[in-house]
Amino acid sequence: MKWFEIALVVLTLGSGLVLLLDKLFLAKRRATKGGLLDSEEPALVDYSRAFFPVLAVVLVLRSFIAEPYKIPSSSMMPNLLIGDFILVNKFAYGIRLPITNTKVIPTGEPRRGDVVVFQFPGHPDMPGDPQRGENFIKRVIGLPGDRIGFHGDTLSINGQPLAYEVKGEYVGKGRGAEMNGATLLSEALPGRTHTVLEYLGRANPAGQGDWQVPQGQYLVMGDNRDNSDDGRFWGFLPEQNLRGKAFLIWLNCSGWFCKDGFEPSRIGSGIQ
């Protein structure tokens, strides 16, 4: 959440600044006046000394190493379910500054099939889109320069239709049961095979089309092809909006205190 990131940065910098001012000026002033013992230092300094190391470690881990997210929708079923808590590799696509998401050190680029978290660029026909800047999660389908087509139930890349294998009718548990009856398919992306859900023969006409991916941008789609607000509807994902690569499910818990479901078998699962 954006507000949490801002609060974490502000609190870390604020407590660090208090400690710095205390070391440079306030502690010397207390000593000159025959001041207070360390245990009697001002409460603000005492709290800053206690919380700054913890805040700094959390900020570094969350901004540059791995960040937790919760899956709020069914757009990535069957691979990610509502209530999945995931970890995102924050350095896979470059070291980026918190809040601004500015890349300062390049470390790599997305590969086709990667599941990525990004700041939603917004729908082009909604300048005031309230979801703009929120974190979304989708799969990278089109790389810069690719020609992508999606017609009927088939995805094609650079003129080559992908191969599909029907795995049967999808049967989910808990919140995953909302897509029961859809067809579970294996989709063979170049270099990576993964599963998708579709109601075969009931393709949404609004999600059909052809796209030429510009340089510096990507086309992303959800694995739940008939229930995903993705690049087919709002366009391309700019590289600068990337937040990281999803790689691990560390918990599955839906609702307060898991009242809507808990799936221990998902804990520790890798994200394909």
Rank of each mutant, 00 (worst) to 15 (best):
V115K: 05
L11R: 04
V9H: 05
E187A: 01
N252E: 02
R266W: 01
W234E: 00
D38H: 11
G201V: 04
Q272N: 14
M179K: 15
D260Q: 15
R62L: 12
G83M: 06
P214A: 04
A66Y: 11
G35H: 06
G216K: 14
K33T: 06
S74L: 04
Q272I: 06
D229E: 06
V196A: 08
A206Y: 03
P124F: 02
V117C: 11
K138G: 10
K23W: 13
A188H: 14
E198S: 04
M179F: 13
H151W: 13
D223R: 07
F257Y: 12
G176C: 13
P205Q: 03
V220M: 08
M126N: 09
L242M: 04
R232F: 02
N89L: 09
I271Q: 05
G174V: 05
L162T: 09
E134Y: 07
T183I: 05
L20P: 03
H194C: 03
T102E: 03
V166S: 14
A246E: 02
S269T: 13
L17D: 03
W234Q: 00
I267M: 12
P72I: 04
G191L: 01
R202Y: 08
G145K: 11
P205L: 05
E239V: 04
T102A: 07
I6Q: 05
V196Y: 01
V140S: 13
K2T: 06
G231A: 05
Q208M: 11
D125T: 09
L184Q: 10
G201M: 06
R112P: 10
K33C: 01
L44F: 15
E165W: 00
L36P: 03
S73F: 03
L44H: 14
L19I: 08
Q212V: 12
G108T: 07
T183K: 06
Q212S: 12
E178H: 08
Y199N: 03
K138P: 11
D129H: 01
R139T: 08
P130S: 09
G113T: 11
G94M: 06
G168S: 12
L189K: 08
W256K: 15
K90I: 14
D38L: 14
S269Y: 09
A27P: 01
E5P: 00
D226E: 04
A31T: 06
G94S: 08
L37Y: 03
T102R: 10
A188D: 15
P130H: 06
R112Y: 13
G149H: 00
Q119L: 15
P144R: 13
W234C: 04
G128N: 14
W211N: 03
L26I: 11
M1A: 13
D22T: 02
A163C: 00
L19G: 01
W211M: 02
L61W: 14
I86K: 12
L237H: 05
F25D: 00
C258I: 07
L162P: 08
H123E: 10
V9A: 10
G35D: 07
L219P: 00
L251E: 10
V60W: 04
Y47W: 15
P214I: 03
G34W: 01
A163L: 08
D146Y: 14
D229P: 00
V171W: 00
Q160K: 15
A66F: 12
Y170R: 13
F257G: 07
T12G: 08
G201W: 05
Y69M: 09
R96C: 11
S269V: 09
K23G: 07
V196H: 03
K245S: 02
T193L: 01
S75C: 09
E169Y: 02
